[in-house]
């Protein structure tokens, strides 16, 4: 069963690292998208619209094409386009804009009255982010991260087909190419469990942090 355990760890590793980096990048993008919108603290139409366009373009490309199109950039960053490490580059770059939109909508849910109150207190934009936007949006940000991580589990399986590691590669090479039904079923079962655990943890954290009756 060693290849299965190995592949499981690779998937967890890929999803965790790319999810973490995507959350940071996408979260920052989401904050910029939110604050540069009209009538916001740092409203700037040029930045808002160009960032919005980049995010939309990245999100409109199907992942399988995105991944292949990104091979030269992947090579530039990690030196190779094959393996787990290489798979994490397109995973991160696909998940970041996805999460940016989720984060932006989470910030949009923060009460405008509260933002007004904090502005009236004389808060800087950085203080508004740190003391109000992040804590108030945190439950939604966590729910959004759960969705992103689950999407990443799916993307990471696709990465396996073009030379990435993980459960996707295992299922493809053993399950599909060698007709190994047992491996096919096992990888599927592991993926199901993985998604269930992610959803459960995400729901638990979001509920714990929401503090609303």
């Amino acid at each position: 069963m060693s290849p299965l355990v190995n592949a499981t760890w690779e998937t967890i590793y890929m999803v965790a690292i790319s999810g973490f980096v995507a959350a940071l990048l996408g979260g920052a993008l989401g904050i910029i998208l939110f604050l540069t919108a009209p009538k916001r603290a740092l409203s700037n139409a040029a930045i808002h619209q160009s960032l919005g366009l980049i995010v939309n373009i990245a999100r409109s490309i199907p992942y399988i094409i995105f991944m292949i199109a990104l091979i030269p950039i992947t090579r530039l960053i990690v030196g190779t386009s094959i393996g787990t490490l290489a798979a994490m580059v397109p995973l991160t770059l696909a998940a970041a804009p996805f999460y940016a939109r989720i984060a932006e909508s989470a910030f949009n849910e923060v009460s405008p009255g509260l933002i007004e109150a904090v502005t009236a207190m004389g808060a800087k934009a950085s203080q508004l982010i740190w003391y109000v936007l992040l804590p108030e949006a945190m439950p939604s940000l966590i729910r959004g991260l759960t969705i992103t991580l689950i999407a990443l589990v799916g993307y990471s399986a696709m990465a396996g087909i073009v030379g990435g590691g993980g459960l996707g590669a295992l299922a493809y090479h053993y399950g599909y190419q060698r007709f190994d039904a047992q491996i096919m079923l096992s990888t599927t079962a592991i993926l199901v469990v993985m998604v269930q655990v992610l959803q459960w943890v995400g729901d638990y954290l979001a509920k714990k942090l929401s503090r609303r009756s």
């Binding site: 009255g113 004389g122 109000v132 804590p135 439950p139 929401s210 503090r211």
Partner: peptide
């Protein structure tokens, strides 16, 4: 900072 403001819907941080 030298002006306080209060609101109809309180505008507290729920979290």
């Amino acid at each position: 900072r030298k002006m306080g403001m209060i609101f109809q819907h309180f505008n507290l941080i729920a979290t």
